[in-house]
Design a binder for these strands. Structure first.
Lengths: 150, 150
DNA sequence: TATGAAATTCAGCACTC
DNA sequence: GAGTGCTGAATTTCATA
């Protein structure tokens, strides 16, 4: 796909805030009719600008109150560690391979600190290649969004 | 709201993977009809288990290729820094107040390293209270999901 | 604009306590 | 017998061509 125009961008802005807006509602705020908006959304989906639509749930109500951030440095740099995480350990919401001193960065949601202890003990610690492991815990979420500033 | 039963949980699991599934499709996979599934979804929305529905966009196609992680430690601990971030600096996708040595943890999406430089220079550095500022950059996303393991 | 599909509402049935 | 959760049909609203 070529370039996005301002209308496309505005549609994306709206949908990443609220995916339940109807095409007509979006059309109204853009001073258009539903059809062109519909065509554009389909195009944005097909060309991959829109990856998926999801429901965002309330962590606290689901007893996932602990957010831990975990920074891992390896002793030796081989493929093993990455492969382990490619297999998607279920509690890990985000895992990034980083540039620099820290090799991996993990964000994990759990019910309790005990569960985090168990996660480190059973999932991470038996990866023998781990050098340094630093854990941080979230006291308060100040900002959390899935939107991009486009 | 009281407790969630297995059907509620399964509905939440489905919707946090794909919010475009129709109530009938969900109903089929649960061996139910559309009505009770519909009622349950409405209830889960009203009681706040479902916070919102959003479209997830493709970072790369939107020229937000740089993901930076930024750890900030304050010199003195007052309310000022928090308040600054409560105002939601636009590039910051996540900002957490942390326990321990590091005070704040930020995840930022940008087009280029230059923009990151500019972000640090103009947004962070004029907060005089900052002690240590460590930046990390993502080489590769290994896992990234908005789902909770419920 | 026209069509089909989906969401939404509702009356009535089945089960539990 | 009151309460809850289900079915299936009727209606409205939306997506879609």
């Amino acid at each position: 796909m070529e370039k996005l125009d301002d209308i496309d961008l505005e549609i994306l802005r709206i949908l990443q805030q609220d995916a339940k807006k109807t095409t007509r509602e979006i059309a109204e705020s853009l001073h258009l009719t539903a059809s062109p908006v519909y065509e554009r959304i389909k195009r944005l989906e097909k060309t991959g600008y829109i990856e998926k639509y999801v429901a965002l749930l309330d962590k606290k109500r689901l007893n996932q109150s602990i957010t831990a951030i975990c920074m891992v440095s390896l002793r030796y740099h081989n493929k093993g560690f990455i492969d382990t995480f490619e297999r998607q350990i279920k509690e890990v919401q985000e895992c990034y391979h980083m540039a620099g001193k820290v090799d991996f960065f993990l964000k994990i949601h759990l019910e309790s600190l005990e569960q985090y202890h168990e996660f480190v003990r059973s999932k991470l610690s038996n990866i023998e290649n781990i050098g340094v492991l630093e854990s941080y815990f979230v006291l308060k979420e100040i900002t959390k969004t899935t939107t991009y500033h486009i």
